[in-house]
């Protein structure tokens, strides 16, 4: 009964991911993308008028420290991603059950993600009028969204089935994709600073 429920839940998630990928493709390949982008401009201008935006623009030191905490959160998140993916690739912790490592790393990942998102929103408010015009900012948002969807709708549900029930090549593919995705998120994030200066 429980395995049937788990399978139904897993299938549902797969359908959601496929639907989201299709929607993203439709969005990216049609004029809809430009329409939404133009509509978002007012929202970005509003972001700069919020408390976060005002503090970020007025006190450079606050912005800089929040920036550093954003970096630290990414460090925590990255550490969790690397530990779990190294375990999936069989590069360490072989004597510890994989599920234990994955579950504990996921908790750290979630904390890292929460701090990164909170500090990221603060930073985006402070420079909303600038990042709106930077393609690399949108690439980062796309990579971030993909990373979050990948973790919660692909990686976690898939690995919850138990590693022994999954093809070893699929496990390695998931681990490599996960590392590439999160390094892309971090790299595009860093590049926002260069592109905006």
């Amino acid at each position: 009964m429980s395995s049937t429920t788990a399978e139904a839940g897993s299938n549902q998630r797969t359908i959601i991911v496929v639907a989201l990928v299709l929607l993203t493709l439709i969005f990216a390949l049609t004029p809809l993308r430009r329409v939404v982008w133009i509509d978002l401009y007012d929202f970005f201008l509003w972001m700069e008028t919020t408390w976060f935006g005002v503090i970020g623009k007025t006190w450079g030191a606050v912005f800089a420290v929040v920036e550093a905490f954003h970096l630290l959160a990414m460090t925590l998140l990255g550490g969790a991603v690397f530990v779990s993916d190294f375990r999936l690739l069989g590069w360490g912790f072989k004597d510890v059950p994989a599920q234990d490592v994955l579950d504990k790393a996921h908790k750290v990942f979630v904390w890292g993600l929460i701090i990164a998102l909170s500090t990221g929103i603060f930073m985006a408010c402070g420079v909303a009028g600038k990042v709106y015009w930077l393609p690399v900012f949108w690439y980062k948002m796309l990579a971030l969204l993909t990373g979050i969807l990948f973790v919660f709708f692909v990686k976690r549900p898939l690995l919850s089935k138990g590693l022994e029930n999954i093809d070893a090549r699929v496990i390695k593919l998931v681990a490599i994709s996960s590392m590439l995705l999160w390094v892309t998120v971090a790299a595009t994030g860093r590049w926002i600073g260069f592109a905006g200066s």
Partner: peptide, 30 residues
């Protein structure tokens, strides 16, 4: 500079996990 910053994820990411484990805040079952 990007490599310097991105490597934080590898170096400090690991260090933070070790420190958090010592403090009993992460990976307590290992």
């Amino acid at each position: 500079e990007s490599t310097h910053v991105l490597t934080l994820m590898l170096c400090l990411g690991m260090l933070f996990l070790i420190d958090l484990r010592m403090l009993g805040l992460a990976f307590t079952n290992i």
